[in-house]
Simulated scan of single mutants.
Amino acid sequence: MNPEAISLEGKKLRPVVDHLNDLLANYHVHYQKLRGAHWNVRGSHFFTLHAKFEELYNNAITTIDELAERVLTLGKSPLSTYKDYLETSEIKEINTIGLSDVELVKAIVDDLGILIGLERDLLEITDDANDEGSNDMINAFMQFNEKQNWMLRAFLNKK
């Protein structure tokens, strides 16, 4: 795809694409952490958290696809190896086996904080590139993550 075909200037899009790929890598690590949390949650909050983690990983996989397709729309290739994801991501892997339900929620809250920060940075970058399409998409992701962060923090009884 040629960015000019959608009325965008190619040289202005380089930072957008780089940051979209960074966000994509972070979402992949976050997604896998959510899967592990879903599989390994135990305790009195099992039913609530098992369903919540499933909701979150389903949302994350949709977000991953949208991010990759946006990178392609902008004329570049999305990252596509776990090696690249792990090297690029600010979110780090954890072993979810044996963690308490509260520890799992805390790990997801930490991830959401990182994602929200990356998304806020990306909003400025997409604005500078006059890339309203990416901006709208990232804004929707951020709004979802902010709400989930609030809900999970309420679960933890944190402000």
Rank of each mutant, 00 (worst) to 15 (best):
I6W: 00
P15M: 04
I64D: 03
W39S: 06
D65M: 12
K33Y: 04
A51R: 10
T62S: 11
E69K: 04
N58D: 13
L56I: 10
A25S: 11
L49H: 09
D65Q: 08
K33H: 09
L20W: 07
E55H: 09
L13H: 08
D22I: 09
Y57N: 01
I64N: 06
T48R: 09
A60G: 02
E66T: 12
G43E: 01
L23S: 08
L20D: 08
D65N: 12
A51Y: 03
F47K: 06
N58P: 01
P15T: 07
V41K: 05
A37W: 00
V17L: 05
F46I: 02
H30E: 09
H50E: 00
F53Y: 10
R14K: 15
K11C: 06
E4W: 07
E4A: 14
E55F: 03
E4Q: 13
G10A: 14
T63H: 12
A25C: 11
L20Y: 11
G43L: 00
R42K: 15
K12H: 12
A5F: 12
P15R: 08
K33I: 04
H38V: 02
N26T: 09
E54K: 09
L24H: 14
G36I: 07
L20E: 03
L24P: 03
N59D: 14
R42L: 10
V16I: 11
V41R: 03
K12D: 13
Q32P: 01
G10Q: 14
A5W: 03
D22S: 08
A5E: 14
Y31W: 15
A51N: 09
T48N: 11
I6Q: 01
L56E: 14
H45L: 08
I64T: 11
H38Q: 05
I64L: 15
A37V: 02
Q32W: 14
H50Y: 02
V29F: 05
G36L: 10
A60N: 00
N58K: 06
N58Q: 14
K11F: 08
T63A: 15
S7I: 04
L24V: 08
D22L: 12
I61V: 13
L13V: 06
D18C: 10
K11L: 04
H45V: 03
I6P: 01
A60H: 00
A25T: 01
E4V: 08
L56F: 12
R35N: 03
W39Y: 12
K52Q: 13
D22F: 07
G36C: 10
I64Y: 05
G36F: 07
K33E: 05
G10M: 09
L49D: 09
H30C: 07
H19E: 15
Y31A: 06
D65C: 10
N26Y: 09
A37E: 02
L20C: 04
I6F: 03
R14W: 07
A5D: 14
I61T: 14
F47N: 04
F53P: 02
R14S: 12
L8K: 07
D18N: 13
L67T: 10
A5P: 03
H19D: 15
E54N: 07
A68T: 02
Y27C: 06
L67W: 08
G43R: 03
R42H: 13
H50T: 00
